[in-house]
Amino acid sequence: KTVEVNGVKYDFDNPEQAREMAERIAKSLGLQVRLEGDTFKIE
């Protein structure tokens, strides 16, 4: 899975870890996480 923030992509081998990281980043920035294919987009 991939986490994308402001056009910057971070790859994770563990999908659960990617989801947790995406949620943590989104919460700290006051944004939403949206799953698009294999990418968690933070917008």
Results as ranks from 00 to 15, higher is better:
D13G: 09
L35A: 06
L31W: 10
G37H: 05
V3A: 01
N6K: 05
V5H: 11
V5I: 13
A26F: 04
Y10F: 12
R24M: 11
V3G: 01
E20S: 10
E23H: 12
G7Q: 02
G30Q: 06
L35P: 01
V3Q: 01
E23L: 10
N6F: 15
G37V: 02
K27D: 09
T39I: 14
Q32D: 08
E16D: 11
D38G: 09
K1D: 02
E16A: 13
R24Y: 10
E36F: 07
I42A: 02
D38H: 06
Y10P: 02
E43Q: 09
V8E: 08
D38P: 08
R34K: 12
G30I: 00
Q17K: 12
Y10M: 10
E23W: 07
F40A: 06
D11C: 15
I42W: 00
K9I: 10
K9P: 04
G30S: 02
T2Q: 10
E20N: 09
S28D: 12
V3W: 02
N6Q: 08
G37P: 00
V8H: 11
K41C: 15
Y10E: 01
V5N: 02
F40K: 04
A18M: 04
R24V: 08
V33D: 00
L31G: 12
A22L: 06
K27S: 09
I25V: 09
D11M: 14
A22S: 03
E4N: 06
N14V: 07
F12T: 02
G7E: 01
E36H: 07
I25T: 05
L35N: 04
V33M: 07
R19L: 10
T39S: 09
V5M: 09
K41E: 05
E36G: 05
L31Q: 07
G7R: 03
L35H: 06
M21L: 10
M21C: 15
Y10C: 15
P15L: 11
Q17Y: 08
G7T: 02
K27W: 04
E36Y: 09
K41H: 14
E20K: 13
A18H: 01
K41I: 15
R24F: 09
T2Y: 14
L29D: 02
R19N: 03
S28C: 15
D13P: 10
E16S: 10
R34Q: 08
G7P: 01
E23G: 06
N14R: 07
S28V: 10
G7I: 03
Q32K: 13
Y10W: 10
A18P: 00
G30H: 06
T2R: 13
V8P: 01
T2W: 13
G7Y: 03
V3F: 03
A22N: 00
G7K: 05
E36W: 06
E16Q: 13
K27L: 09
E16I: 12
G7H: 05
R34S: 08
L31D: 02
V33N: 00
L29C: 15
K27E: 13
E23P: 00
I42H: 03
Y10S: 03
V8M: 09
I25L: 11
F40C: 11
G7V: 03
L35M: 11
L35E: 08
V8I: 12
D13Q: 11
S28I: 14
K41S: 04
D38R: 03
R19D: 00
R24N: 09
R24K: 13
K27A: 12
N6V: 04
R19I: 06
G30D: 05
V5R: 01
T39C: 15
K9R: 14
D13T: 10
E16M: 11
A26L: 06
S28N: 10
E4P: 03
E4S: 10
I25K: 00
L31I: 07
T2A: 12
L31F: 07
V33P: 02
N14M: 08
K9S: 09
A22P: 00
D11F: 15
D11H: 15
D13W: 05
G30A: 02
S28E: 14
R19V: 04
R24L: 10
F12G: 01
L29E: 03
Q32G: 07
S28Q: 13
R34A: 05
S28H: 14
E36S: 06
G30K: 04
K1N: 10
E43K: 05
F12V: 04
L35Y: 11
F40H: 07
A18G: 01
G37F: 04
E23R: 07
F12R: 00
F40E: 04
V33W: 12
R19Q: 07
K41A: 04
E23I: 12
A26I: 04
I42D: 04
N6L: 14
K9N: 06
N14C: 15
E20G: 06
M21T: 09
A22K: 01
M21N: 05
L31P: 01
I42Q: 02
E23K: 07
I25Y: 05
K27H: 10
P15R: 08
A18S: 03
Q32R: 09
L35V: 12
D38Y: 04
A26K: 00
L29I: 04
V33L: 08
E16K: 12
K9M: 08
K1M: 14
A26T: 01
A26S: 06
I42K: 02
R19H: 06
G30F: 01
E43A: 08
N14L: 09
D13C: 15
A22F: 06
E16Y: 09
D11P: 11
E23N: 11
L35K: 08
E16W: 11
E16F: 11
V8S: 06
S28T: 10
E43H: 06
R34F: 11
K27F: 04
A26Y: 02
T39N: 09
A22T: 00
D38L: 01
G37R: 02
L29A: 05
D11I: 15
G37A: 04
L31T: 06
A22I: 05
A18L: 07
N14F: 12
Q32L: 11
F12K: 00
L35I: 13
L31V: 13
P15K: 08
F40G: 06
F40S: 06
G37Y: 03
E20Y: 07
R19E: 04
K41R: 09
K1P: 07
F40P: 05
E4R: 06
Q32N: 11
V3Y: 02
K1I: 12
K9D: 04
R34E: 04
K41G: 02
F12P: 03
A18K: 01
A26V: 03
D38A: 03
P15S: 11
D11T: 14
L35G: 02
T2P: 05
A26R: 01
D11W: 15
E43S: 10
Q17D: 13
E23Q: 11
K41F: 15
P15M: 12
A26M: 03
K9A: 08
I25C: 15
F12A: 03
Q17W: 10
L31E: 04
K41M: 12
E36L: 07
Q17M: 12
L29V: 04
N6D: 09
G7S: 04
D38M: 03
D13H: 08
K1R: 13
D11N: 14
Q32E: 12
I25N: 00
V8K: 11
K9W: 06
N14G: 07
R34N: 05
Q32M: 13
E20W: 07
Q17A: 13
F12S: 00
A26G: 06
G37I: 02
E16R: 12
E4I: 13
E36R: 03
V33I: 12
A26P: 00
N14E: 08
V5C: 15
V5S: 03
T39A: 07
G7C: 14
Y10D: 00
F40W: 14
E20A: 14
R34I: 12
G30P: 00
M21F: 15
L29G: 01
N6Y: 12
D13A: 12
K41Y: 15
I25F: 07
D13L: 10
R19W: 11
K1L: 11
V8L: 10
D13M: 11
G37E: 08
E36Q: 07
D11Q: 14
L29R: 05
K27V: 07
V8C: 15
K9Q: 09
E43R: 03
G30L: 03
R24Q: 08
E43I: 13
Q17S: 10
I25R: 00
D38F: 04
D38C: 14
A22H: 00
L31K: 05
E43D: 11
M21E: 08
A26Q: 02
S28R: 14
R34Y: 11
L35W: 09
Q32C: 15
V33Y: 10
V5E: 02
K1F: 15
G37T: 00
Y10I: 11
R24D: 06
L29K: 04
L29N: 04
K27G: 08
K27I: 11
E36V: 14
T2F: 14
N14W: 09
P15A: 13
P15Y: 13
T2M: 09
G7W: 02
V33K: 00
F40Y: 15
T2S: 14
V5Y: 14
A26N: 01
L35F: 08
D13F: 09
R19F: 08
D11K: 14
F12E: 02
E36M: 06
K1W: 15
E20V: 12
F12D: 00
M21A: 12
N6G: 12
L35S: 05
G37N: 10
R19P: 00
D38S: 05
G7F: 05
F40M: 08
N14Y: 09
